[in-house]
Amino acid sequence: MIKKIFKYVVFELIRSRIVWAYAVFLLLSTLGLFYLGQNSSKTVISILNIILFIIPLVSIIFGTIHLYNSKEFIEFLLTQPVDRKTVYWSEYFGLACVFSFVFTICTGIPVLIFNFSFTSIYLITSGIILTFVFISLAFLSSVINNDKVKGIGLSIILWLYFAIIFDGLIMSVFYLFRDYPLEKIIIFLTSLNPVDLSRVMVILQTDVSAMMGFSGATIQNYMGSFTGKVYAFAILILWILIPSYISYKIFSRKNF
């Protein structure tokens, strides 16, 4: 059953113009950056910066809208002999898989062609993980808000927070308390931001110290590059599991 409904969700998404627009944008910006840049490993870093911005934005906003637009479909499924678990996870994996697939084809493959390296593989991995994380957050924000406008609003706030505001916060903490040993706090704060964790995971692989940032440098000093990468990866997995599971629990108690 989960396969049948998953298939429906995927076909529905493939017909969506937003998914195609996302694909075209990723492909053009990836090819454009390789075309303009001279040094392909530097280009990978520029692509990383685009990914860290665009994947969370598109995943969380479109994920939220998609779930509200699927309200009728979901309600209908629940009047049929289909359980909530099946409905929820088909929707979740349908979205997450389509978006990860689009990213892998439009950004991942070109990156590997122009720059076949471990860094590129890390870049692709972190893009896929970020997609899953922000779709989990999208589901959480739409499941806790019956009102579409509020749900989308919360998603925009979450994105702004992770993509923009958070950096400022961590920087101020660092400057205000720079005389104190702050490693643990910086690592803790970084763990609270999946966008930063993804960046750190890729940057630790490149060892480009100019790109480390406070969080990257701290993690590198404290744990070393390898443990740092493993740590970032593990926390990111939690960032996928925890929100998606909480919203699943709320979904399974919801009144339709």
Binding site: F76, P81, V82, D83
Partner: peptide, 18 residues
């Protein structure tokens, strides 16, 4: 449980299909 719904035909008060 969901399998018990196999024998149920339901007509909602407000028709809400995709």
């Amino acid at each position: 449980n969901s399998s018990y719904r196999k024998i149920i035909g339901y007509m909602p008060q407000i028709a809400n299909y995709p």
